[in-house]
Write a protein that binds this DNA or RNA. Sequence first.
RNA 1: GCACCCGUAGCUCAAUUGGAUAGAGCGCUUCCCUCCGAAGGAAGAGGUUGUGAGUUCGACCCUCGCCGGGUGCACCA
Length: 572
Amino acid sequence: MDMSLQSVLQSRLAMAAERAGIDASRASVTPVTDIRFGDYQSNVAMVLSKELKKNPREVASSILSYLEVQDLCEPPTIAGAGFINFKVLNTALSDAVNAIRLDEQLGVVMAPHSKTIIIDFSSPNVAKPMHVGHIRSTILGDSLARISRHLGHRVITDNHIGDWGTQFGKVIYGWKHLLNREALEKGPIAELVRLYREVNALEENDPSLRETVRHELVKLQQGDPDNLKIWEQAVALSWKEFERLYGLLDITFDERLGESFYNDALAPLVERLLVDGTAEISEGAVCIFFKDNPALEEKPCLIRKGDGGFLYATTDLATLEYREKRWKPDSVWYVTGAPQQLHFEQVFAAGRRMGVKTDLSHIAFGSILGEDRKMMKTRSGENVELGGLLAEAIERALSVVAEKNPDLPKGEQEKIARMIGLGAVKYADLMQHRLTDYVFSWEKMLSFQGNTAPYLQNAYVRIRSIFRKGDSEGVNVSLSPIMISDPAERALALKILKFGETLHSVMEDQRPNLLCLYLYELADTFHHFYEACPILKSDGEIRSSRLALADLTAKVLQTGLSLLGIGVPERM
RNA sequence: GCACCCGUAGCUCAAUUGGAUAGAGCGCUUCCCUCCGAAGGAAGAGGUUGUGAGUUCGACCCUCGCCGGGUGCACCA
């Protein structure tokens, strides 16, 4: 499968335009906005009429006079201001859907140039629990990685965890004086957090302690063996808990190079930039100024503090250099929240100053809000922990499954509940435009109605149940060629053909919400088909054709959801 | 003060990147289970796309000015 129906029409149109002596490079064909106009439409004539200084309808008609598509559709028409409309023949539509059925990629065309893309996401902090703040980065980053890979790109996912912060002064002091071994084994991160808080409180009461705690941090940074050992254990214990959550979410990383990995590179990097004149000292700090960039003119990028310490940006630049050298990427995507935009503008500008040519993107996203429309927090004002949140999602899903399907064995109910609960959390996040803040609502994300994961999973389950039913009743459920004739079949077939294009449009702006929208429309279109066209109750070729169409729909649903990191159960 | 993001139906959000009469879900009003899962479907009400100009065949989308909300802005990450 190398050409979709849409792209065939597009290239025919381009050929016709060329013969008409018109620049054909921008000839594009898209699905119609309204079924009354046919199946596909093109607005080339209107786009080009401006520069040709001709009437758009005239341009359209001159293109049409050279257009040969009689094997694919009815004679194209000119409508409105100069749209060219296509109504695909049932035979051509049937052929196109049958081709997709036999294609492992379901009609998805590989990206013409495979790129190396590094995706930097999730990045929790050691000795702290993962919380809602990490949800979007983790889910969005994972989905983008899956989609990029599916389109044939070489993807490197890297979890740049915060394993080298100032918090370690407190953690180490606490470890030495206040550690509860038993608690550490039961819940490592909870115990590390307790140590951190307790030391914090002690410092409040006894400011003289502050110096001692700071000294523990300095010792760590200077390589003190005892402190290093404590640090290593804290990192390892934290990783264990992170991995449990990633396992639950079915998310993996190719690399896990945290901030500490770049420690040794920081001092030489700053020195080098000072020597070659990229950076300069200002008010005691080492800065990179951007005098040629009006937006950043007064926003220098600080890479070393007055006291000699390094900053967030320093590590990011060292990381960027390392990645350049090791992977020679075409793109690096940083999946972090919108508030960090200025920071990345500075880092990217500094990177370019250092000669980095790679395409660097900040894949920004909005915040998760509580029902009160303020940043989501617990009642006591703390961050909501991811582990607890996922557990609650599964628990809520389980009670729904147990209620609706009490006959299923307990073990299967739990398995299904995991898919529904985790799918709901992921989908609620991904279905929205990434830049808008979104309001977290259990009720909405777990609803079986509307644009939710459970609704889509249910559409899949419903199709599977047709086959189970057919099997049990001895109906022949073998699949034979799809023959499109009914309007509901046409609509479903056209929607299925749109799958590949949708994935490419997601990549244009890193927006999985377009895939969510597509899958929802697909499920919706299937339900129309399901109402209008009896499947098991029809006979012969029509039944096997409709079964095949339903089966193909299920495959696209399953594949699409898997690209969002969401699984489908066989029943629910 | 400056910069960035966002203002779309009562609520939560879309809109194929400048295309045809701005679409869904929730909620509301009516219908449809002797019929493949009603966990579904059909129909209806609901809009000056914050606001005022501009650009053009055509604007939710692009430009400029306002209004309202959020976030960030030199030694945290």
